[in-house]
C-alpha cells in the first residue's frame, strides 16, 4: 500500500515536471515570438498536434510493453487507403454515413494489421524491432504497389468538417485526439489489460510466472497500437482530403522522441499517458513558436533534440534513485 502511494506521487511529480517544462516553453515563446499568445496560434497548434499525437500514442503502448512499433506511419497510410477506397467506390453519395464508415474501416484495418504484427512478436518470438521493421517495409510495398505511388483523393465534402471544422471553438481533430488520450489513459491505468502491459514490459518472465498470458497481451498491445494508427490514418485522410503511402512518414522518429520525452522507459514497463500528452504539446509549442519567429525548420529540429536532452538530463538523478 505504501509502495502504491509512493508510485502515485512519483507519477504526479513526473506530470508536474512535464507541465513545468510546457509552461517554461510557452513563457519563452511569449517573450521571444511576436503575437504568440493569440487564439489563432493555439487553434493552429490544435489542428497540427492530433495526427502526430495519435501516432505517438500508437508508438507508446508497445514501448511500455518493452517493444517498439516501427510500422505505425505506414499502417496509418494503409488504413487511410482502405477507407478511401471503400468510400470512393461505394459511399460517395451517401453523405454523412461515409464518415463513421471510414472511421470504422480505418480502425478495424489497423486492428487487424496490429494483431498480426503482435502475433508475430508473441508466437515467433522475434524482436519487435525486426518484426515491425519488416512490417513497415511490407506495408509500404503493398501500398505503393496498389496505388502505383499515386494517391487516392477527392473525399466527400463532409470529411472537411472532421479535418478542418470546429465544435464549440475546439478543432475536431483535437477532440478526437483528446478522446483517444482519455481512452488510452483509462486502459493503461485502470484495466487488467493495462496493468498486464506494464508488467509484461517490466519483466516478461515474471509476468508469465504470475499467471499473465503474455502472448495474448502482446497481441493486444500491437492490436491497440494498430487501431490507434488506423485512427491517425483516418484523421490524415480527413485533413488532407487525400491519402498516399508516405504521408506522415517524417513523424516516425518524432513519435519515439515524444515517448522518451514523456518519461517512457526505453526498456519497457514504465511511462504514463498524461505526461505524454503534455510532452507532445510542448513539442508542438516549440515547432509553432519557431515558425512564428520565422526560424529555419531545421533549427526547430535542433530545438526538439536539445529539449529532449535537457529533459533527460534533469530527469536522470531522479530515475537512478528509484
Amino acid at each position: 500500500m505504501r509502495n502504491l502511494s509512493a508510485k502515485w506521487s512519483g507519477d504526479r511529480i513526473e506530470l508536474a515536471a512535464m507541465f513545468a517544462f510546457l509552461a517554461a516553453v510557452i513563457l519563452f515563446f511569449s517573450i521571444a515570438a511576436p503575437n504568440f499568445l493569440s487564439l489563432g496560434i493555439f487553434r493552429s497548434m490544435a489542428f497540427q498536434l492530433p495526427e502526430l499525437g495519435l501516432l505517438t500514442l500508437a508508438m507508446f503502448i508497445p514501448i511500455i510493453a518493452g517493444g517498439l512499433n516501427l510500422a505505425v506511419t505506414f499502417s496509418a497510410n494503409i488504413c487511410g487507403l482502405a477507407a478511401a477506397f471503400v468510400v470512393q467506390s461505394a459511399l460517395m453519395n451517401h453523405g454523412i454515413v461515409a464518415i463513421p464508415a471510414a472511421l470504422l474501416i480505418s480502425i478495424f484495418t489497423g486492428l487487424v494489421i496490429g494483431m498480426l504484427i503482435g502475433a508475430m512478436v508473441a508466437y515467433v518470438g522475434a524482436h519487435p524491432i525486426l518484426v515491425t521493421l519488416g512490417a513497415m517495409i511490407l506495408l509500404r510495398g503493398i501500398g505503393e504497389t496498389v496505388t502505383r505511388g499515386g494517391d487516392i483523393s477527392g473525399m466527400p465534402d463532409v470529411f472537411e468538417v472532421i479535418g478542418h471544422g470546429s465544435l464549440f471553438g475546439i478543432p475536431v481533430p483535437m477532440i478526437i485526439f483528446l478522446a483517444a488520450v482519455g481512452l488510452c489513459f483509462y486502459i493503461m491505468q485502470f484495466t487488467k489489460l493495462g496493468f498486464s502491459i506494464h508488467m509484461v514490459g517490466s519483466n516478461p518472465k515474471a509476468a508469465l510466472f504470475s499467471g499473465i498470458n503474455v502472448n495474448r497481451v502482446l497481441v493486444w498491445v500491437y492490436g491497440l497500437s494498430g487501431a490507434l494508427s488506423g485512427l491517425a490514418g483516418f484523421l490524415m485522410l480527413t485533413r488532407f482530403n487525400s491519402v498516399r503511402v508516405g504521408h506522415g512518414e517524417s513523424y516516425l522518429l518524432i513519435t519515439i522522441l515524444a515517448c522518451f520525452l514523456a518519461g517512457a522507459n526505453p526498456f519497457g514497463g514504465f511511462g504514463r499517458v498524461l505526461p505524454l500528452a503534455v510532452g507532445l504539446i510542448s513539442l508542438q509549442v516549440i515547432a509553432s513558436g519557431m515558425n512564428l519567429m520565422g526560424a529555419s525548420q531545421h533549427l526547430a529540429t535542433v530545438a526538439w533534440g536539445a529539449f529532449l536532452i535537457v529533459v533527460m538530463a534533469v530527469r536522470a538523478p531522479f530515475q537512478t534513485k528509484s
Binding site: E51, R244, G246, H247, G248, E249, S250, Q297, T301
Partner: peptide, 9 residues
Amino acid sequence: VGPTSNDPA
C-alpha cells in the same frame, strides 16, 4: 519556410 523533409504533411 523550408520543411525538413518532402513529406506533404
